[in-house]
Structure formats: C-alpha cells, structure tokens
Design a protein around this nucleic acid. Sequence first.
DNA 1: CTGAAAGCGCTAACAA
DNA 2: TTGTTAGCGCTTTCAG
Lengths: 352, 352
Amino acid sequence: MNADGPSPPSPTPPAGRSRVTLQIIADHLSVSTATVSLALRDSPLVAEATRGRVREIARQMGYSYNRSAAALRTDRTNIIGVGFHDITNPYFAELLAAIDGATAAYGRSILLGTYAEDLERQERVLNSLAEYRPDGMILCPAGGSTADSLRHLVDAGVPIVQLSREVPGLGLDFVGADDRHGILQAMEHLIGLGHRRIAFLCANESISTGRNRYHAYREGLTAHGLSIDPALIYFAYGTRENGLKGIQQVLDAPAPPTAAICMNDLSAFGAMLGLRHRGREAGVDFSIVGCDDVKEAAQWFPALTTIHNFQNQMGAKSAEFLLRRIAEPAAPQQRLLLTPELVLRGTTCPPR
Amino acid sequence: MNADGPSPPSPTPPAGRSRVTLQIIADHLSVSTATVSLALRDSPLVAEATRGRVREIARQMGYSYNRSAAALRTDRTNIIGVGFHDITNPYFAELLAAIDGATAAYGRSILLGTYAEDLERQERVLNSLAEYRPDGMILCPAGGSTADSLRHLVDAGVPIVQLSREVPGLGLDFVGADDRHGILQAMEHLIGLGHRRIAFLCANESISTGRNRYHAYREGLTAHGLSIDPALIYFAYGTRENGLKGIQQVLDAPAPPTAAICMNDLSAFGAMLGLRHRGREAGVDFSIVGCDDVKEAAQWFPALTTIHNFQNQMGAKSAEFLLRRIAEPAAPQQRLLLTPELVLRGTTCPPR
DNA sequence: CTGAAAGCGCTAACAA
DNA sequence: TTGTTAGCGCTTTCAG
C-alpha cells in the first residue's frame, strides 16, 4: 500500500469562478446528483450518514448553491423586487431597511430598482426587475403612475404589494398610512393653537399620499369655516429644496400664513431653513409641521413637530403581505392603513 | 375558408405567471428558438425582416426575458451584489444611490444585502448574495472584518471592489476617501482657531475609516505639540445616539474640550444635540466638525462644518471599477482615494 | 434509501 | 440567413 493510501477524498478547491456543482460532489462520493441535492436540503429521504458525508464534502470543496439553476427548475428565485423612487430620501431608506430586515429573515434577497419619479424609467426598471422573475415585488409607484402603466406586470402574475403610495384600480395589496387622519390631527393642533392662515407646502396631486394629505388639509380648513387661499398652497414634489422655495413663496403672499403643513419632513426641513433666511424661526414666530417623522426630525433644532408614520411597521408589514400573497396568489386583497400619530415637538406655537 | 381565416398569429397572452418562452414565439412564427433568441438581441445574423416580425410578436405576446435561464447558460447575471451595513445612514444611502445610478446605466441591477456591523450576519448575507452569482460585488465590510472572513468569496473568483472601508491583505480594488487628509484639514482649522483641547467622538479602530480618522486626529495633535488626552476620546460606532453620549462624556472630563471632531456627520448631529442639553451651542461656545457632508448637514442649524467626502463620485467610481474588473479579471489592482474637502459652515468658532 | 432520466429557458457551436 | 443540437446546474418524478 503506498503512502497516499486509498485515495481519500481530495477536495480540490476550484480555480477561478466557483466550479463546484452537485455533479462534482456526486462523482466524488459515487452517489447521484439527486442524492446530493436532497442531502444538501436536509431531506429525510436520504440517510443520516450520507447526508453528513455530502455536507462535509460540499463544505470542503467550497460548494455554493447556484440559484439561477434552481430557479429555472423550480420557478422560484427567493428574490423580492423593490421599486422605489429615491432611497436618498430617509423615509424610503427607512422603509427599505424595514423590508430588508423582514425579508432577510425569510431567506429572501432584495433586488433594488429606483426611478426618481420618472415614469419612463420606472417602466424600464420594473420590466428589468421582472426579468429576474422575483417571487414578488414591493412597489412605491412614481408620481403620475397609471393603472395601465402597471397592468402588464400585474397581468404577468407577479405578486405585488404597493407600499405607502398606491395607484388605484389594480386591486393590489396595499400597506400605507391613513394620511387623511394624520393631516387632520395636525390641522386640529394648529387651529387649536389659534392659526387661521395655514399654508400647505409641496402639495402634489400625482401621488396618492400627496392627494390624501392635500385634500385633508382642505377638509380641515373647511371644517373650521376657514377659507382656502390658493396663494398659501405650493405645488411640488416634497424635497428639501422645494420646502425652501415653497415657504418663501407663501411668505410673499398678500396675506401671508402663520403656519405651514408640509407634505413630508424633508420639505419641512427646507421650510425651516427658508424661514431663517427671512429672519423667522419655527416654533417662535411661525409654526411648521412635517410628515413622516424621519430619524433626523427629532434631532433638529428646534425639533420638528411631525406626523409619525411608523415606517418600520409599514415596511415589515408590506413584506409580510407579500409573503402571504406569494403563498396564496388567489387570496382576497389585503389592505392595511396604519394610523399615524402627531408628535408634538418644538416647531409649533401660537401665532404672533 | 372559414371566418377565422388562415389562422393569423393570434397572440394569446398567458394566463398566470408569464409563460411565453422563446419556444412559443418560435413555434408561432415557424422559426427556431435560435433565430428568435438572436433576433431579440438584435443580432445582424438574422434578417431585418425576421427580426421585425419576431420583436413584434414578442411584444404582442408580452414576452419577458428569463434571466435565470440566460444566466445559467452564459454565466452572467447582470447582477451587482451590494453589501452595506446600514442604508438608514444617509452616507450609505447616498453611496447606494450613486452605485444604482451608475450600474443601471449599464443594464445592471442591484441585489442588496445589509448586516448592521454584525460579522456573522455579514457572512450569511454575502454567501447568500453569492449564490445568485452576481457578476461582481461592491462591499463596505462590517467593522472587525478580517481578510480571512472574506477570503472564500475572493477565492471563488467573484470580482469585488471595496467601497469607503477596506480590509487590507486581500489585494482587492478599492475606492474611498483620503480620510487622513480630511481630518488633518479639520485639525488645522480648529487649531488655527485657537483650540488646544480637542475631543474625538466615535473613534473606532475596527473599521479602516475609523482607524484612519482617529490616527490622523492624533497625528494632528502631535504635530502641533499638543498632548493626547484619553479622556477626550470616545470609542463607539458613529451613530446619532453615540454622538450624543460621547459629547456628554468628554464634557465631563476633568479638563473638558473646547471642540470636537466627529467620526461622521451622524455623530456630529448627536453631539450638537448633546451640547444643547448642556446649555451650550455649537458655533457659539463650542466647535464641532463632522465628516461626510451628508445632505442634511448643510441644512442643520447651525449648518455643520464638515468634511465633504464626494459620495456621489465614490459610489459611481466603485461601479466603474467593478465593471472594468468584470471585463478584465486579471487587470492590476485599482485604487482610488478621493481627496475630501473641509467645508466651513456654522459650527466652528474660536474657543471662549 | 438511492439512482436514472427528463427538463426548466436560454445560448452557442456547428451545419445546412 | 436559419435550424439542429447540446448543455448550463438544478429538482423531480419514477423505479428499484
């Protein structure tokens, strides 16, 4: 018997791109690929001992499961497609983190696409994501999205849940916030403080959250017999820059406001800045309320009074909804509207 | 001849999950799948006319390319794996957005994994991403990552570029900032203003940026003959919360500081808050400088003096590096250190 | 408990 | 210019 012995498994790690396949492992152990496949997935069909040997060799050889191959066979990828418009907006970053946390726990990975409120880009990005055959998608549709623009995805049978924003008429699952309720709370607060001339910054009818919030603002005004002054309404997407522009514009109105409700926290931050450019200060001689309660809101100076939207729960819930939908494609439509909570901080005060 | 005519292509859209394959299109047109495949990829090998017919029918039938199948065959997925520790940190969100912008332009999609500075989770997440056989990966390794913990990925031959942080000893491509240079600028500024007792908040030797910045801080002190007071150094990850804790701790030192350099903007924001809890104000009776120049930094009040790190360029460059590496696996190591710029705003002033 | 064989949808030789 | 064929790596009957 020579020094090398009876050729013990000599697991040669692959050179270059991982070349270890089930076949290679199978050959090594003189079993079939079926056995290896089953063993690696811990099937009780294969003997305890065999399972052990397979796993051990696989480990030694540095085997890495090829999900493309598995996906082709099983029609499942374990991919969750996520389409957002901008992850640089902390609101969406928080939502994305929540989704990631929830899906990772179920062994799903996130394939991300962004489209910056651009409908054409959304179309391209979403189609591209679909080509990876995600098990499902979580979407926050770009402003101006129509049911028609998403229909082909829906028709293709991809499970979809809409998050935060929704385009109606598709019968899709949805999780979002009760935007109307949130803004109404804010209006009560401001009006209770004595404000009569209240601006709305970054109104936007092209997204559901924008519509809901803006309409609630009008509703709140009307409910208290206050008139709606178009000069106090600034239409734009809710960005830091637009908040800044918006506040300046409404401050220049013939009858300027004493308070402003902002579409989201970002525009509220911009508004606070704009106020300072005019020598004014939120919480002292003007009132600002934001929406979302993004992490930085609590740290601002003064800290922002805003509407807490529970993005952690929203994101996690959307993942749960999606997983359920994937398991049961024909289940009835799921809808969840989280109730937002106004959190009072330092940017609101009675009018001067 | 019956009313239906000679069976014109009657593209029946699929019921349920997209079932249109090359085969189905091929049958429809009585050509081979090879022709359809070529046609859809606009190959000059197939006649203009045929190409047109194929594309038209594909469109009508709602064909969607199956990338798993293509990947299996070609060994390319067009997926870029991205591993970050926390996308809720705007610095990383900005980096991610830049990567997304750059890769999307090349038809690549991003498969995202996060691990919250947890080494075990990083291991799991990265291995999971690898199973999708991304064409390459962009990683910002978790604190404490060792070369060994990433070696198997490298050995598997996955093209990798490290972004922002680097673990040495792997010979990987890297794009980051010249952290030392940035902090040294900040030290000059502070010392020039007259500060002699300068704190460092959120020092962290377990990540390269932390080491570089912290060591540059010590270097700056020493270069000016100033002593290093351990009571002025707070060790922690750079979060909003830790910035707040850190400032309080150094303020309680026997000989408290008059200024602080923070590991990043988040901790600087926390420090500004902590200062206010003590009735102090950055830019008035204390100086704070951050690092990164995240979007919100310019909007804070006072606006944060910080080190601009060009995360847009960093992210975009990392994508470029990766694409080049994918095209040429054996090319020499690529390294880029962007030179940060100190941007003076409102949080620094001479000591009282 | 294990193996043989077929096939998921695509692309790449090679032939015609 | 187009078709034939084989096969990427995996899972899943179905036999044994």
